[in-house]
């Protein structure tokens, strides 16, 4: 299953809820959630820990727009909108954690 997150990990509990609830699969960080994919972000360790269960992707155009295109944390796969489409296609279902 694909879990799409669009909230900053530092201003709400959405990423935490997803990590605590979802059994595994793909996570895609878009919009303000892309901050979670940056080196030195406070959630880096938490996300690293989750990587055993999840494969974590980030929507690069959103990261680049926010001036952090060169700060991608290790282990996170960059995708463009085409890659976003591929992830939706590859998973049987998807959930946007609004």
């Amino acid at each position: 299953m694909l879990h799409i997150i669009n909230k900053s990990p530092l201003s709400g509990g959405t990423l935490d809820s997803c990590l605590a609830t979802a059994t595994g699969g793909d996570i895609l960080l878009i919009e303000d959630a892309v901050y979670a994919a940056t080196r030195g972000c406070a959630v880096e360790a938490k996300l690293n820990q989750a990587m055993g269960r999840f494969k974590v992707h980030v929507l690069m155009p959103d990261l680049e727009a926010r001036g952090l295109g060169d700060r991608l944390a290790e282990g996170i796969t960059p995708v463009d909108f085409g890659g976003f489409v591929d992830l939706v296609e590859a998973n049987k279902s998807c959930q946007s954690w609004l």
Partner: peptide
């Protein structure tokens, strides 16, 4: 959640 076909939030 994993069992679902359509998840609307």
């Amino acid at each position: 959640m994993d069992e679902q076909d359509v998840v609307l939030s």
